[in-house]
Design a protein around this nucleic acid. Structure first.
Lengths: 190, 190
DNA sequence: ACCTGAACACCGTTCAAGT
DNA sequence: ACCTGAACACCGTTCAAGT
């Protein structure tokens, strides 16, 4: 009953090593060949487990976004939830080197059930009384802002000067607060 | 008095051809070798006119941003100016294929006088009564939002679904309005 | 089922050498 | 001053072949 040896690789080991490589070398250093070398394997071996580099980036992006959704503290109002989500996004982008750039360049997942995905994303806001249309629009706005801010902070055209002039954390907070409280105008009633 | 022939290349021709190539092939197709081929020249010739690909991307990013600043309609209030700027940014990102991705990935210019640059950016808002600190923070927020929105729209994790659910132009407008009107809270007095 | 070896069609960049 | 030829050190990906 000798079973054959377990495969050396699987998707989890692959993605894990990719994150380690990203941390050490940054996004430009994240090549399939280097990843293979770190795993003690030849580059083509990776293609048994994933279709192409785009899929790898997509898996990594999911792992970056996931804790942001999971990490939003309980909120009594959808505005509080959005603010919490914005801060969680900023934190998760900061956790991984080049995290925002990776998420911006990762292709959208192919096979995912997008309707289901969108429903899950809108769910926390729907539970707080927001219709799905507005919920998605607001979430999209907050993600865009956080994503854009991280890109801008990393290498925007006036980074050097802003670095002296501005507290990035505080200014992000101001922008996020403004964005979310401004959503009130787009909501009837309250 | 026979003068030597004019050089075949200069920075303007180079950047112009780069934009044409970008339009046809997208950001992944914008390689130094293809650019050289389109100009009827060998790749190393490009390096006489620019230091590296980063500099080329930086020049292109400037040409993308510039009309956004120039195209903001006259405004009586800094909030109107910011909204106009946001729409101008969205328009200019849409004008060039992969415009936002290019701007997000272009390295910051090296030699520029950043203090002067920032002062010029803040100037229209300063003329409308805003202090430079807030002016920069607000401009940074609007750029981040527009940049992030364009990235998100291009290949965000829920693009396919949003495409059916959401009018991107309208939702951008809602987000921009929310952001700008929310800045009132960060301003004392009015 | 899972991985290797060799190859294909590319990159950005450097540098001596030509004119 | 401006450009070529040849090279270096890489890429992502495919595919027959091995085990």
């Amino acid at each position: 009953m000798a079973r054959s040896a377990a495969p050396a690789l699987d998707r989890d080991r692959l993605v894990g090593a990719a994150f380690a490589l990203l941390e050490e070398e940054g996004l430009e250093g994240l090549s399939m060949r280097r990843l293979a070398a770190r795993l003690g394997v030849q580059a083509p071996a990776l293609y048994w487990h994933i279709a192409d580099k785009g899929e790898l980036l997509g898996l990594m992006a999911q792992d970056i976004y996931a804790p942001a959704y999971a990490g939003v503290p309980h909120a009594a109002h959808w505005r509080d939830w959005l603010r919490g989500f914005g801060h969680a996004l900023r934190a998760t982008f900061a956790t991984h080197r080049d995290g925002a750039r990776l998420c911006a360049s990762a292709p959208a997942p192919r096979d995912r059930d997008v309707a289901d995905h969108a429903a899950r994303i809108a769910a926390p806001l729907a539970a707080l009384g927001l219709d799905q249309g507005r919920a998605l629009a607001f979430v999209a706005s907050v993600i865009s802002f956080a994503l854009g801010w991280a890109s801008f902070e990393a290498n925007g055209p006036m980074h050097d000067y802003l670095d002296e002039m501005l507290d990035f954390d505080e200014s992000f907070d101001i922008g996020l607060k403004a964005l979310v409280s401004g959503f009130a105008d787009a909501c009837p009633g309250r």
